[in-house]
Amino acid sequence: MRPVEIGLDGLLCLLLLVLAWKALRAPHLYQSAIYFIALGLVMALAWVRLAAPDVALAEAAIGTGLLGVLLIDSLRVFARDSKTDPDAESEEPPPGEINVYPAGSARPSGRTLPMILVTASCGLLAILLVEAIIELPDGGGLTAAAQENLERSGVDHPVTAVLLNYRGYDTWLEVGVLLLAMLGIFCAGGRVGFAETRQSNPPGHLLSWLIRALAPLMILAAAYLLWLGKLAPGGAFQSGVILGSAGILLRLAGFQVISRLPPLAVKLGLLLGFGVFLIFGGAALLTGRAFLEYPEARAGELILLVETAAAVSIGFTIFAFFAYLNSRDQPEAQENHAREEGGNQKP
């Protein structure tokens, strides 16, 4: 390996460590969130260096983009003083308050012993881990096995083959985890339905023009990535995330996407991916094959169908995460109830 490459990798790794340290140690939560987003973007570069472009796409889009939006949106809630009157809660907090919210004060003082203990044990663990990682033997891996069966899988990109054919179970259950997380968020939020957010400062003409222009382009890009997943990095996850972010952008620009949809369509959108996997798995069982085993001749088409359903469902779910968390938290159950009866039905 050339020294230039070692220098680049070393610099990236150093940057990763520094950003992680800063994210954990920043005095303000807002800075913490920004450092975390920066960490995710540098991590995407690290994935590219490790020859894993699929992971880089997923990390940049989901790990950083979506979670970053959710984190910053949550700051809006945490920055709000819980003791203020309910009327004030509907207003956006002044921007200064987000910045000055101290996280350091959350740690109780006079707890040096646990701190020393934790630091020492983590340091010891670090030494042992690094030692173990260096000692690991080379070799192993499943690259050859994945390549060998590629022809039978119906797609030409090994990562997609693993995701949707060899390890279809994982992907199915993962779509299930998304669904579960959505249900959990409904429970934690204490309400169902996506209340409209009153924008305290509506987006300008420029922004709303841009988003109007970008939304179709993003849907096109999502379709392209989905189709490309057969031969090259891309696929259901990345495409779903682009769909989801198109929805998030539309909502941020003030277009009420999800609350316009009939409640049944919302539920169907959330369930689609999981359901299609289940139907295909069941059909495979009925015709005497293993669960989620595709007939070899038609594997390509079937995988594309399952992928499309999964992408739509993933996009819909992550958009729903944001739409739900972003809609106004209402402590008053009555107002909540009235709103739901007007707009959304309880499932």
Partner: peptide, 20 residues
């Protein structure tokens, strides 16, 4: 190796759902 890659992509999505 495509197998860890696929698992990490799955993992990222699961981690984000858990985070949300």
């Amino acid at each position: 190796d495509p197998v860890p890659q696929a698992m990490v992509i799955t993992g990222i999505v699961v981690a984000v759902s858990a985070g949300a």
